[in-house]
Design a protein around this nucleic acid. Structure first.
Lengths: 204, 204
DNA sequence: GTCTATAGCCAGATAGAC
DNA sequence: GTCTATCTGGCTATAGAC
């Protein structure tokens, strides 16, 4: 039973419990009974508030996506240079994910299972848009500030270097033979390491 | 019903079908009936040959892992320079995964669900070992061939840049607004793009 | 709104004929 | 070895008392 404070109503209690179960076990692996136990309420209440497992899942997914999207928009749409963007994003994003370690994997996993899901996200406001970033990369390339690279490739690289370690954590830990504390240390290093790696590669 | 050739026995027919279902739907999402249909045989045969869903799944997992491990070992244990390794790996690995697109996600996903699973893999031969790669990076750093970087961080970066696009395909496609053919083109470019990106970053 | 009890279904596993 | 038929348990969802 988990209770954050007395003010929490049942609906948000359920949502919090559902987050934690869905994000670790996925849609197929999650059990409504387990979510109810986690929330400290009865299974019937899940259906009273959210009608079905599918709808509860969608509420959790939208909620998770709405946490992640602003993180991306920050890189894409502020007015700093590419270099500053890379540095800010790598540091901020890794800090953010370290506090929500299951989030990226959850999003990516469930999008693989059900690619149409993202269409619903695109309809809502705040879906990340790459246009400004593309123009900016092209301008900095033209002005000789950074080496020739396509904005899309650079964007994929930034995302990959920042997100992958969290998604592949168990695999990486075993490949490089790191225990939990070693791994945390490596992640901490990456807050600057990743940005340096990218900047070194693209800076003229 | 899928039949590769007359020589295929039932056991390998089942394994092939199980691969295709487990790798797309995961352990929890897969149905024994669906695997049987795919193999063109009866559901009871699955239990006759593999006893349980869990054991069939483990057979598929081990098989998948044994395909992936040699790809990693190639980078780690041949005698070429770091630069050559990065170039070979990026090209070979992306080609390999393009033919088995569900493989890395399957491995990573199921390791997240059940991290102890990898312990069984470590016992078997051919589990990737980083020792040689570490020494080589340290030597090339000491000799001034590449910039100062920890072998572990470089290894994570190489893996991230090569693997992530396949794992996050649906997300990336929507973020950069690419249809299937655009995406294939970007992947094709990455066979050299990724290596250049890494070499630019570490080469002195 | 919240609970208990249960309906109804579906999936993994097995029995047993051939 | 391969099949059909069936058992058994577990899961989502709902009915209905309070």
């Amino acid at each position: 039973m988990i209770k954050n404070n007395k003010n929490e109503n049942t609906e948000s209690l359920i949502l919090e419990a559902a987050k934690s179960i869905f994000q670790t076990k996925g849609m197929d692996g999650a059990r409504m009974q387990e979510i109810a136990d986690q929330a400290g309420i009865n299974k019937a209440m899940l259906h009273y508030y959210y009608r079905s497992k599918q709808l509860l899942f969608e509420a959790v997914f939208k909620n998770a996506f709405s946490l992640l999207a602003p993180q991306l928009n920050t890189v894409l749409n502020d007015d700093s240079s590419i270099e500053e963007k890379v540095r800010n994003f790598s540091s901020n994003y890794i800090s953010f994910i370290a506090e929500h370690p299951y989030l990226p994997n959850f999003i990516i996993q469930e999008l693989n299972r059900n690619p149409d899901f993202i269409l619903k996200m695109k309809e809502s406001n705040g879906f990340p848009n790459l246009e400004k970033f593309k123009k900016q990369v092209d301008v900095e390339v033209a002005n000789g500030i950074i080496k020739k690279i396509k904005a899309e490739q650079l964007f994929i690289n930034i995302l990959a270097l920042n997100v992958f370690p969290f998604i592949a954590k168990p695999l990486i830990q075993n490949l490089i033979d790191a225990d939990e504390s070693d791994f945390q240390h490596i992640i901490e290093e990456r807050k600057t390491e990743v940005a340096d790696f990218i900047i070194n590669s693209i800076k003229k």
